[in-house]
Amino acid sequence: MLAMRSKIVLACADGMDNIEIAAALRIHRDTVSKWRTRFVKLRLDGRMDEQRPGRPPSITLDQVEQVVVATLENTPKGATHWSRASMAERSGLSRSTIGRIWRDFGLRPHQAGTFKLSTDPLFVEKVVDVVGLYCNPPERAVVLCVDEKSQIQALDRSQPVLPMMPGMPERRTHDYVRNGITSLFAAFNVADGTVIGELHRQHRAAEFKKFLITIDKTVPAELDIHLICDNYGTHKTPAVKAWLSRHPRFHMHFTPTGSSWINQVERWFGFLTDQLIRRGVHKSVRALEKDIRDWIDQWNANPRPFVWKKTAEEILESLARYCRRISGAGH
């Protein structure tokens, strides 16, 4: 708007009349007349908007600050967190006003997240190793993120599920019948997103060794295999170590303790859970296993690799900043 007003003033200085200026700038001639008159009277200050009358704000900045500080630094008596009602009672403001202040400052007292910092003494080395495989994978090799989703339950509802209808979501009984469990061993290829999957009724080192054999048969013989695993005991038994020693193209890389977020197969497990397992209804383990195999086949028909964006240095610096933030949490 200020640029348009300046153009009007400059056109007036060139000797153009209001009709000519309005036509050239494609605006109404009353607009030209208004800002010509304002400039003649106030010179350059005339280009600025006048102060407009209005109702003064109903709350002061001090009141807003008090609500924000109290939300961040205090808790109400007899409760673990503030509600709009309790903060309104404390501050003397309305509930809707408290809600607006919280929205403006991104405060959500009713929500709480979780976190866990790894205590692995080799945390830095393992992060650098794993992220290095993501960002700079070795040549003539495949990088696989491996883990087990254990004890997947075949659940059947006690009564038939009522399908979704217009204006009404799908409904199911809160209780269910357990029909057995299975475990999925999966290897996620970080390069192309394909998955090698295998189901077993038990979750032991013997089953993990069988899965390693499956991987060995599936991956072309001319490629090295780099496996990213967690520190679960079945991955490090003498039998597994002996098998690996006889297959030198396998290279094991372990994630830091308590850091499953760095293993990409965990994200893939999340897709499987959301799209199949959480709301699935299965009358037998065999039916559950069939659905899992079908879902994996559909995924592999259109695989989607994940894009890893953060370097190891960025991850470590982010964690360092977080540690500095919480280091004084108890004071």
Rank of each mutant, 00 (worst) to 15 (best):
I181S: 10
P57H: 08
N179I: 02
F185A: 08
S86K: 15
C12E: 06
D104K: 05
F39N: 12
C135R: 13
V219D: 04
I19D: 11
K310G: 00
P160N: 09
N263D: 13
C145F: 04
E266A: 08
N179H: 15
A206Q: 14
I21N: 06
S284G: 13
W295M: 06
A287L: 14
W299V: 10
G113E: 04
V146W: 04
L244Q: 12
L319W: 10
A221W: 00
G46I: 03
A88N: 04
Q151K: 13
M87Q: 13
H203Y: 05
P138N: 12
L199Y: 09
H110E: 12
L10F: 00
C229M: 15
S183E: 13
D175G: 04
F250W: 10
G54E: 09
Q66F: 04
R5D: 04
H235F: 05
K236D: 03
H235S: 00
Q66G: 03
H282D: 11
L155H: 12
R26A: 15
P163W: 06
Q63G: 05
R178D: 01
E20G: 01
P109H: 12
S91M: 14
T71F: 08
N231Y: 01
T257Q: 09
N189W: 01
R267F: 09
G15Q: 08
E139I: 00
E222T: 04
E222D: 12
A329P: 00
M164N: 03
H235K: 06
T218P: 02
L272M: 14
K290N: 05
I225R: 03
G280Y: 11
T80E: 11
H110F: 01
N189H: 15
S318T: 06
T71D: 09
P137R: 06
F123W: 13
V131Q: 12
L144I: 03
F306V: 12
F254H: 15
A141C: 01
A287T: 14
S94I: 05
G270C: 11
F39D: 05
L2W: 09
S91R: 12
W35K: 09
S83D: 02
S94R: 06
I326Y: 04
V143C: 01
D224H: 02
H200R: 15
V195E: 02
A186Q: 01
I326V: 14
Q153S: 13
A186I: 01
D175Y: 11
A312P: 01
C145I: 03
S318Q: 10
P160Y: 07
L272F: 13
S158R: 11
K210S: 12
H235E: 02
R29M: 04
L144G: 02
Q275S: 13
K34R: 07
